[in-house]
């Protein structure tokens, strides 16, 4: 490293002067993360194919197999909804300019909040995408309260999520209606409360994100990014649901489920912990057969609005002062409204 200053002044000569140890110690370094990876994956694939025949016949414990079936079932059932939802949401992120929103929303903030909430019903936004979209809206001059209403509503009540809910709860159309009603109510209420009591210094409005480059590239990038995020958390949810299903004795679940308020609270907290994407959460909720419909509704309403992944995203985007106020408010309202809706409708 004694040649450092020399390298700075005369970069091209670096290659000629670096005839140090043979072979240079950077050889191994180059191989390890970059070129070794494909080989590592090839090895994994070979192992998978071999394991299919060598290992699978021996992994026959009934509990393990049941766990695996439930886990794979949740992943496989939710995946198409996830892929489709992410694609649409990425298309909106990439192809609809944010200036469209400023023009489409009414000028009066108190009216703009419910309109923005309703816009969530037509425009799919994956919840990971909804935070950057909302911050983009604010950066382009949309009232923060309206942007927040959109942020809460769009992952919860968009058409793909509603279809997924209908598929997960066949023969129970009221579950879809209750999810729609409760989520929209919470989104609008939070928006109005923020309009009335919120202070601008709590909210750090990010600077306008630069948009450059081709829209198709932006679409591909947004889709890949959301898919990796949402897919990872879907697996977390599937793991937890399958484990609950197989490991936790049924009597415990029925005992918790028998106390209505506790069941609602437990499912709401579970939604926060699991952080499942809204396109996929209905299938996890439906698998919790021990719980009442109201408790499942709480899971479906809380999940898209408050969960660990969203809290992290919101705190990172809008600042911690915002998150410590916004998150508890949303959680409390979501639990209350879904309990009320469940009591009325289900």
């Amino acid at each position: 490293m004694g040649t450092m200053s020399h390298l700075h002044t005369d970069p091209p000569r670096a290659w000629t002067d670096e005839d140090g140890p043979v072979p240079p110690d950077s050889w191994g370094r180059d191989l390890s993360p970059g070129r070794a990876l494909p080989w590592g994956f090839m090895l994994v694939i070979v192992l998978l194919v071999v394991g299919r025949f060598a290992l699978a016949p021996h992994l026959t414990s009934a509990a393990l197999r049941t766990w695996a079936t439930i886990f794979v079932a949740i992943c496989v059932q939710a995946l198409p909804f996830l892929v489709f939802g992410v694609a649409l949401s990425a298309a909106i992120t990439a192809f609809v300019p944010a200036s469209f929103w400023t023009r489409a929303l009414p000028g009066r903030p108190s009216v703009a909040v419910p309109v923005a909430g309703m816009a969530g019903a037509v425009l799919p936004g994956c919840e990971c995408a909804s935070v950057p979209v909302a911050s983009g809206l604010m950066a382009r001059g949309v009232t923060p309260a309206a942007a927040l209403a959109f942020l809460l509503a769009s992952p919860a009540i968009n058409p793909i999520v509603l279809v997924a809910t209908a598929v997960a709860f066949p023969g129970q159309p009221l579950m879809v209606a209750a999810r729609f009603g409760a989520s929209l109510t919470v989104a609008v209420l939070v928006g109005w409360l923020w309009l009335r009591f919120g202070r601008s210094e709590w909210l750090r409005i990010p600077s306008r994100p630069h948009d450059g480059g081709s829209k198709l590239v932006a679409f591909g990038e947004a889709m890949r990014h959301d898919l990796l995020h949402a897919g990872g958390f879907l697996i977390v949810g599937g793991l937890a649901a399958a484990t609950l299903n197989v490991l936790v004795p049924r009597e415990w679940l029925t005992a918790v489920a028998a106390i209505p308020w506790l069941a609602v609270l437990v499912m709401a907290l579970l939604a926060v912990l699991l952080s499942i994407c809204s396109e996929a959460d209905a299938f996890v909720a439906a698998s919790m057969t021990a719980f009442s419909p109201t408790a499942k509704l709480a899971f479906l309403v809380v999940g898209p609005m408050v969960d660990l992944k969203l809290i992290a995203l919101q705190a990172g985007t809008f600042g911690r002062a915002f998150a410590v106020r916004f998150v508890p408010l949303t959680f409390a309202l979501a639990v209350l409204v879904s309990a009320l809706c469940g009591w009325l409708l289900l």
Binding site: L48, V49, G51, R52, L55, A56, L59, L64, R65, A68, T69, F71, V72, C75, V76, H225, L228, H229, G231, G232, F233, I235, V236, G238, L239
Partner: peptide, 20 residues
């Protein structure tokens, strides 16, 4: 990418190794 995305390998392993 997010680190949580590594988990997406898990269903692949389960599908091939446990063949539920």
């Amino acid at each position: 990418g997010p680190r949580v995305a590594w988990l997406m390998c898990l269903p692949v392993f389960v599908i091939f190794l446990i063949a539920p």
